[in-house]
Amino acid sequence: MTAPNPAPPGAQLGDWVAGVTELVDAGFDYLDLLTVVDWPDAGEFEVVIHLVNGDAQGVFAHTRIDREAPVLDSLVGILPAANWHERELAEMFGVTMTGHPEPTRLLLADSPVAHPLRKDVPLPRRQDRPWPGAKPEPGRRSRRTPRPHGAPDQPDRDG
């Protein structure tokens, strides 16, 4: 089953750094948001940026990268504020940031763990704690066992 991927707002950039540079040069030089959306069915990561100009007008832009070998050119050269955002995306999604001046962990402990914001990585917290919704509501014999939203059918601790 393939989930439909809704088109995000803003332009799809072919050349990430060149496209963002164009927007920065056009006055959208305040980095508001830099994040990644995981599309496992499409085998892609979608990198999304939101930039704001001096009149508080915002513009979105995005680009798609391969999910198996995710590589993205760093924006730190043109947007220094992207530094921590890119380090976060590197550890949370496993995206290699080419040309990043400081490609080290930002938030996670320095131990080998899966990239926790990938959709196929179950939360360890959810593995050792039973789902509170599994209890049947009183007086009803459930025809089927309810399952939590978004839970993989075969939980795998290591993702």
Binding site: W131, P132, G133, E137, P138, H149
Partner: peptide, 17 residues
């Protein structure tokens, strides 16, 4: 005690007995 809130909670922060 219908459990709807427990099951819809994305954070699993509600429990009902």
């Amino acid at each position: 005690s219908c459990m709807l809130c427990v099951r819809e909670c994305p954070d699993w922060c509600i429990e009902i007995d």
